[in-house]
Structures are given as C-alpha cells and as structure tokens.
Design a protein around this nucleic acid. Sequence first.
DNA 1: CCTATTGATTCGGTCTCCTGACGAATCAAT
DNA 2: ATTGATTCGTCAGGAGACCGAATCAATAGG
Lengths: 408, 408
Amino acid sequence: MRATIPSPPITSVTRQLSRRSVFEALLHRGPISRADLAKVTGLSKQTMSEVIDAFGQQGLVRPVGRTSGNVGRTAVLYELSPEGGHVLGIDLGARRLTVALADIAGRVLAEADEPTDSRGGAWALDQIARLSDRLARDNHTHPSRIRSIVMATPGVVNPKSGAIEMAPNITGLDHLNVVGLLGEKLGSAVVLENDINLALLGELWHGCAQNLDNVAFLALGSGVGLGLYVNGRLVRGENGAAGEIGYLPIGGDPLQAESRLQGCLEYQVGATGVVRRYREGGGSDVDSEREVFERAQAGDAIAACVVDETARLTALAAAAVIATVDPHLLVLGGAVGARPDFADKVARVLLQLAPRPVEVRASSLGRRAGVVGALSVALRRLHDEFFGVGELAAALPLPPPAHRSARQ
Amino acid sequence: MRATIPSPPITSVTRQLSRRSVFEALLHRGPISRADLAKVTGLSKQTMSEVIDAFGQQGLVRPVGRTSGNVGRTAVLYELSPEGGHVLGIDLGARRLTVALADIAGRVLAEADEPTDSRGGAWALDQIARLSDRLARDNHTHPSRIRSIVMATPGVVNPKSGAIEMAPNITGLDHLNVVGLLGEKLGSAVVLENDINLALLGELWHGCAQNLDNVAFLALGSGVGLGLYVNGRLVRGENGAAGEIGYLPIGGDPLQAESRLQGCLEYQVGATGVVRRYREGGGSDVDSEREVFERAQAGDAIAACVVDETARLTALAAAAVIATVDPHLLVLGGAVGARPDFADKVARVLLQLAPRPVEVRASSLGRRAGVVGALSVALRRLHDEFFGVGELAAALPLPPPAHRSARQ
DNA sequence: CCTATTGATTCGGTCTCCTGACGAATCAAT
DNA sequence: ATTGATTCGTCAGGAGACCGAATCAATAGG
C-alpha cells in the first residue's frame, strides 16, 4: 500500500483549473480514456496526459482496462481511485447513530447504525469513534485516510464557530467542545451541521429533490423544523437559526406564555403538542406522537381529528414558507412527516391555500437522509480542498458609496 | 471623442483574472499608481504595465496627475474613466418614474424623476425613453454608450424569461413585451427586476444594509411585499414569486374567499385593507392608507387603533420571515413602512415575538431605493460582462447517484 | 498484408507571468 | 549645485502552461 496521500502540490491557477475540469469529467463520465477526456474538457491531449500522470502519482486515478470493439487503437480507460481519499458521514440522532463511508468519487462503501448511547455526551462521542473505526477497518481503509468528516446533529449550529448551540434531545452535548473532541478521536477535522439541513441535502443528492435549486424541507418528528435550499445553496441564516419554524406565529396566540417559550407552532405541532391535544380531546394515555398517528390510522376518531389538525397547521406553516421563498418543491420528512398519508393530507390543504400549487413529496430516503447529506457535504469539502478555486470565484464587489471626485 | 468602446478582446483565462483583479483594485482604491496596484494585486510591475496599457487603449482607464511629496520618483496615478461605459437605472412606479445614470466606477452622474404617465402601457415606455435620452445628453453621454440597463417594476418578474407576469398597479403593462420594446427604444438590452427586490439591493449598496449577507426588506405601501437577501444573493424563487407575502396565512382565515383571492395578509395590511378597517372601525371617509396614518399621528383614536393593528400584523409577518431565514437585519421600506414611528411600533411588537431580537431599521434611501438598486444591478452586470469569469467559478457538482462499479 | 482510424507522444511555438537589472525622476542632505 | 537614497517604470531573460502539427503505435476490417 502506498504512503499517505500528499496534499496536491502548489500549482499555478491555470493548471489548477485544468486539474479541476479533468477531475469533474472523471467524476461524471466514469471510466474514460485520455482522448475522450481531452474532447470533453477542451484541453489538448498532451495537457491531458500531464494531468493524468500527476493524478496517478497522487493516487487519485487508476487505469481500469482498455476500450475494445471500436476501430482504431485501443485506449486506456481511467477512473477515480478509492485510494484518492475517503469521507465519513455521521448522523447523531437522539435515538439512533448512523455512520457511512464513501470514497472520493462519491461511491458509498458502507453504512452502519446503532442505538445512540443513552448516557449521551462523552459516551456518545466515544461510540461514534468506535463505530467509525470499525467501519473504516472493515473496508480496508485506515482511519487516517479519511480526509473529511461531517456530522449531523440536532440543534442550532453556529455558522461561524461551528459549535452546537442547543441540542435539547441529547443530554450533555451542548457543553462539550464536540468539534475538538471528535476531531481528536477520529484524527481528522470534523464539521457539524444541523440534522434537518443535512437531511435536505441528502434528498438533493440521492433522494427526491435531485437537480433542483430551490427546495424546502419540512421535518416533523419530535419537533418541527425546516431546511431551506435557495439559489442552489443551503440557507443557514446569520446565526444558523434559519428554519427554526417552531417560532412561526401560526396555530395560536404568539404572545401566550407557552408559545413564547418553545415557539407557537412547536407548541401545537411538536411531539408534546400532539400528545397534549390528543389528551385534551379526550383520548386515552399515549407515550409518543407516533402512537397518536398509529391510532388515527387504526380508526381512532379523536386521533384522526388531532392528525387532521396537525396536517392543517403544517400546511399553514408550509404556505408561509412557500410565500416567502417560492421553492420548486416541498419535501416532507422526519419520523411522522415522511408518512405518505400525512404528506397527502398536507398537500391537500396546501392546494387550497397557495395562489399557485407547489409540488409536495414525502422524503424518499427516510431516516437515511441525514447520513447521506452528511456524506454529500463531506465529499464536497474534500473536492474543494483538492480542486477549489477559493476566492477566485467570488463576485466582483461593488464600489462603496464614498467616492473620490470624477473630474470630467 | 473616441469611437465606441470595443468589447474586451478575447484573452486567456489567466490574463482575464489579472485584468479582473486590477479592475477591482482601481474600483476600490481610487486613483492609484501602477506600483501600488502591483503591491495590492500581487502581480508584477511588468504585468501591471501591460494591463494598464490595454485598459487605456480600451478607454477604461485614464491618468489623473501624479503623486507628490513622497521621496522617490513621482508616480502617475490612474483612475477608471467615465468613458469606460455607463449604466442606467430605472424605477417605474405606479405614480412616479425615476431614472439615474452612473459610470462604470459606480459614480452616480445624474438622477431625474417625473410623475408616471397615467395612461400607462406604451405611453409609459415612451416616457422612459424620453427621460433616459435627456439624462444621457445632459451629461455629455451619447445614449449608445449606455451598456447596461436595469428597470424596477412592480409585479412578479419571471426569473427565466425576464418578463413581467403581473403588474396590477400600472395599466396595460402586463400584455406588453417590455424587455423587447424598451430595449429597442433605448438601444441596449434591458433587464427587469421586481421593485422591492431592487429597493433591497439599493439599501445594501448605498443604504442602511451595507456589507451584510442576510437581510430581509419588508415593504409596506399600496401592497405588502418582501425582498430577501440570503447568503449574499438575492432570493427570487423558482418562479420569481419569492417575497409575495401577501399570501402569508396571518391576520385572518386563510381559507376565506377574500383572503384566497388577494392573500390573507394583503387583505388586512394592504392599502385597501387599512382603509377598509378604518371605515369598519367607524372612521370617516379617507382616500388612501396614507391618510389613515396621518390622522393617527394627528390624534385620531380610530386611526391610531388601525395603525397599531397594522403594525402588529406586520410584526407577525416579519416574525415568520425571521424564523424562516434568520436575517441579520430587517429593513422596513415602502411609502408607509419607512415611517420611523411605524418602524418603531413594529420593532416593539417584534421584540415580544422572536426568540432572539433582530435589528430593525427604516429604509434610509426612501423612494430612491429602487433606482439605486437598479443602478447597482446594472453596474454589476456591466462588470460581469467585462470581467466575469463565467462558469469557471461554479462549484464542482457532486456525482449523480447512479454509479459504475468500483472494482477494488 | 494493407489501409483507414484512432490513441498517445514528441516537438516547436505562443502566451502570460515573474525576477533581476537598469535608467529616470524626485527628495533630502551636504 | 552636487550627491545619495529612494521610488517608478521598462527591458531582457526565463519558467510554466497551453496548443497544434507531426509522428509513432495499435487496432479493425477488407
């Protein structure tokens, strides 16, 4: 086995751009010959040979057979090598921990999950490290080859510091330097991101929202939350609090005490809200919001009523989001939101609310969405590390209003 | 006077990047010598002289005196020349037409406005052409030198076609090929954009929202509308309908007939809504929502009540937007929204609603915001035409889920 | 076996950029 | 006024990256 992968050597901007477009072509056009690469990228054949040579020496690329059947000389086919680097996606949920491993070409090599260590905090982090290590070794990958790690976590992630600001569902996580500790344990930098945001990105990469630029993802589970993808980019907001729609002034008096504390919409549509409304409606004791949904499907009239009201409020929230950002698609996700029957109900109410109908789909990845999204971000970060063009791509900023005189 | 400005000759990518960074330095560091430009951009003195030479031949740049006072040889100072190109910003409102002219460096050369031709449609377009021509000639600029024109218009602008889809306040504009006709009359391509979006961009460029990446602009005038700036980019939405918050399910039953037709919030907070509520409250006859506000300030109790309710509903809408996109700043604009007293009222209610306080400011450009925003977009487009890097800057797309096998 | 075709390499030539050297212009001190 | 220090701007040489044309190599088909 070769030594650890060297960072790409410093090269000129123009060569970096060439490398970048060759990489992109390799990524999307699978095994491909140098001649075809030259045609696709517009580069000359010998530039192509130089780039492929360099890629080969970095372990980024490997030959995989030759063409055959066509007239003319056979060509050597190349593809991205799994040796080029690996990425890890983690979804740390309150109940379930999922980890997945992919290579630089985005091929998902393995996936594993376990119940989250209920002691939370440091125990959960240890569990993550254990599971990740096992996954790497089982796939003949030394953990040190993992160059990019992204973890989905509930709560608000500060977009500047990358720290968790509130993780109500996992005990003792908010007072821990998660990025630092986990990075140490795993031997590589870790990036955190809100779980709903990553579920949205998962649907965008491998799920029901592929190739779209404007998507809203409404998650309904123990709480209610929103992920937004606008102009082809994730919306985090100034404080990472974008999508905290529990506080939407919908479903009650927003100035009421309970509403102000946990959010007006959350108070009605969150798990405790659903259970409370079921109890208030005369229903017998239930443990979780899930049970209410199951009873509704089993014919419980009170439960059905609660579910209908939940769907109605969800649709109102969705209408607010749709009026605000005008997405192409609304994805319903989360433990209860992804239920097709519930999605249908919401879609029906929505049809009566919106000035123009919006497509509504239930999440197609279900609870895998979070890991898949984490993988996609980890992958993107790895690609950027190797082939990013940095600020070069930034838009030309406009001049400030203060001007020196323009002598005519 | 020199002949018309030639399009920049085709150059290699690397030269284009150099030109770009030199231009940026000229734009922001005012008159500057070649030696300083070399230091700022990191390019060599040699390259700098080449680029400045080329700029000079294109008429982009001109010498303006020399340094003095410092030890050492004096340096020739250069600045962007007004001959480099001009841009035009137009704000076509229902009542007022405003036009402004700027040069390639973003220096606003002139601004003029008139009441909009009340016959609307083709007459308004003629009026625009007349006013623009006059403005250009008064500033020693032949109309043919104007290389980029952007117009603010009410209604939804289709982000793909660039056409107006609904302009309720200006008669006979929605059945006209505005882009085509106006482009013909003015002799240059015209781009349309929603007036609220441009007002937002105006505040971002020259107003109260400078140097921010996440801003919401809530306009309250004859109607209610929202402009969103997220991740440093304008949010148009999939159909250009982002920010149509008249349809927010706030302030009434969203399934009611009137609400469904013109939007639930619009029905309460729009001009006709304010007037209606004043009448329903027992107020005497008024012509416009503006009058209600004036009476409130003059001590009319009924009017004050209506205004308070309007502020309350506006704050609810703002809270919904804030929960959704988490902006750094909320700007209140439009004929009534920009009133400082009203902005204060909204801010006060908002303080009780949001989990974390958000900064609220009244528009600082007032009704100039639209033209200024139009200028900023026109300018950006001109810069991009000259120095854009195109798709080169695009993010590396992730591979699609369908994969060829990865032979280990 | 020969030819058409396609893949891959080699060989100039161009473009852009940088470095180092040098002349030009200026201020400050003698 | 002369000299020295300093800065501006240009010139010449060379490195990196790209391309096109020519050339060699390997294959399918007649």
